[in-house]
């Protein structure tokens, strides 16, 4: 029973992070109808930015509240900038081209980033994983019994950050002018442009927002797993995408639910079956959902407009 509870907590901790990354996929898909394959790799770059910042700050500084804030701010701003450049120079020129070209471009960027970061040249970090500095000093927040159930401070903190980011996003999308513009672009970007909405700016901002969100999620992930590696973007990104599709891509609360479900499923496979089957189960689950409910748990298969 205690073990079940522990797995539940671990699963939720992993799931909130998947949910945050999945939100980025869903937002970009919403406005552009593009699977931003490079999303996970942008996240990875953000984590390396945080890694470098944490080292620049030094040991004492980085575990203070201000230090943590600086690490997150640098990574999120840096990623927003990266997202802006990718959108401006790789995706925007292709907006009126067939959708396949943009998808291939996204895959290309993902490839260039994840393998570029494995090079041993200059400032690039090399293929081996690095230990992520402990920006949040791990402290046991709650211990039940003889360490039967342990809840860590970083689990609580990352859960808190994730929930705050999600609530903020929900507010942004449904309660602000920018959110309304975003929804309009997502509905039909040509009509939105006719209505006087600056679609280019809205799309660019959406990209920056989703990239910043990814950087935040990536840092939480790195803190959880105590390490950072060039391939983490590919793996986490894929899982988050699966989460987004399970919840129904383009659907904001769906992405959150999908992330949590996937986090729990994975944790229970590892805890009660064999860990090596984890990835197979995650993707098998995806195929199953697509078979039964092609639009995901919450999404609807939209009739296509000509």
């Amino acid at each position: 029973m205690a073990q079940l509870l522990q797995h539940l907590i671990n699963g939720l901790a992993a799931g909130t992070i998947y949910a945050l990354v999945a939100l980025g996929y869903t937002m970009v898909y919403g406005v552009l109808k593009l699977i931003n394959f490079a999303h996970g790799d942008v996240m990875m770059v953000g984590v390396y930015m945080g890694y470098a910042t944490a080292f620049a700050l030094g040991r004492d500084m980085r575990s203070s509240l201000l230090g943590v804030a600086v690490v997150f701010a640098v990574a999120m701003l840096g990623c927003a900038l990266l997202g802006f450049f990718i959108e401006r120079f790789a995706y925007r020129p292709l907006r009126e081209k067939p959708r396949l070209t943009a998808l291939i471009t996204a895959i290309g960027i993902s490839f260039a980033l994840s393998y570029g970061f494995q090079l041993d040249l200059g400032f690039l970090p090399g293929a081996a994983p690095r230990a992520f500095p402990e920006v949040i000093e791990p402290v046991e927040w709650l211990v039940i019994g003889d360490r039967d159930v342990v809840v860590w401070n970083w689990q609580v903190i990352s859960f808190g950050i994730a929930v705050a980011l999600m609530v903020g996003l929900q507010y942004l999308v449904f309660r602000t002018r920018f959110g309304r513009a975003m929804r309009a672009v997502s509905w039909d970007h040509r009509v939105a442009a006719l209505m006087g909405i600056p679609t280019d700016r809205v799309i660019a901002l959406t990209f920056m927002l989703s990239s910043a969100l990814a950087a935040g999620a990536g840092l939480l992930y790195a803190i959880k797993d105590t390490s950072v590696s060039p391939l983490m973007g590919l793996y986490v990104g894929l899982k988050a995408f699966v989460a987004a599709v399970i919840g129904g891509i383009g659907h904001v609360p769906g992405a959150v639910v999908g992330g949590l479900v996937l986090g729990l499923v994975e944790e229970f496979v590892v805890g009660y079956a064999a860990s090596t089957w984890r990835d197979a189960v995650a993707f098998g689950f995806l195929i199953l959902v697509l078979l039964v409910k092609p639009g995901g748990l919450f999404g609807r298969v939209a009739a296509e407009k000509v």
Binding site: H7, N10, A14, P129, K224, D225, T226, S227, S229, L231, M232, Y235, E267, V270, G271, A274, S275, T276, R278, D279
Partner: peptide, 11 residues
């Protein structure tokens, strides 16, 4: 057991 490339071994 785990798989090379995993990063979370807590379970």
């Amino acid at each position: 057991s785990y798989s090379q490339g995993d990063t979370d071994y807590r379970a």
